[in-house]
Design a protein around this nucleic acid. Sequence first.
DNA 1: CTGCATCCTAGAAGATACTG
DNA 2: CAGTATCTTCTAGGATGCAG
Lengths: 125, 125
Amino acid sequence: MICATLDLIANKWAVPIILTLARARAASPAPNGVPPLRFSELSRAIPLITQKELTKQLRALETAGLVGRRVHAAVPPKVEYWLTDLGLSLRPVLDELGKWAAKNGPRLARPNSKQADSARQEAAE
Amino acid sequence: MICATLDLIANKWAVPIILTLARARAASPAPNGVPPLRFSELSRAIPLITQKELTKQLRALETAGLVGRRVHAAVPPKVEYWLTDLGLSLRPVLDELGKWAAKNGPRLARPNSKQADSARQEAAE
DNA sequence: CTGCATCCTAGAAGATACTG
DNA sequence: CAGTATCTTCTAGGATGCAG
């Protein structure tokens, strides 16, 4: 079931979204409430993401319980998202991942490229 | 670039393969050489994987430097794989991931309705 | 402002058959 | 034994446009 967790965070935009929300949570000294981000704020904070993807990922993360969502029924619409405690508990995982990536990432020869790797030695015993 | 790392291990069979090789490395007291696994041994250890997928993933992991590969030019063919030190260094990451999954995984409401039928493979904890 | 619906393409992954 | 080679299906993800 470690794969279920991976499926959760391995999507292209899941990590940026989580980190953005985590930053928002850390940036504000909200004592009793978590400072939420609006949809448009998230969209601006992650410029390259599509609205569709942002929506989809937020739904997935919400379903998993990592992200909270509140709709303010008003005009104009206002929907806020925040990282739940469960979502925040992912930080050690992401940090560990980040540590490894920082250390070994630079050396990562692109993994899934179809580049014919010529430098594979065929040891003939 | 944390995403590059994720791309590496987020593939369906990457984790089972790495864990299998890691188990092989831990299981033997090889002092100067790492105990390798043959292609067929890997295939048997991960019964549900396709040959094509096994080959593809091994190539990707090899390119990334996580897995070593040695071909013995002989009949019958014999190709051995082992986890490199770099590959082994991923363990803390996977362990952290596993810890989180063990604690919060049971509560994960299906994120993308991804039926993980490979759960049989993950007795690593 | 939010976010659903629709169409589209590239790549992941499975099944099966064949080869040195 | 250790792979390639096809063929097929499925889904992630991008590009719109429309609606409440």
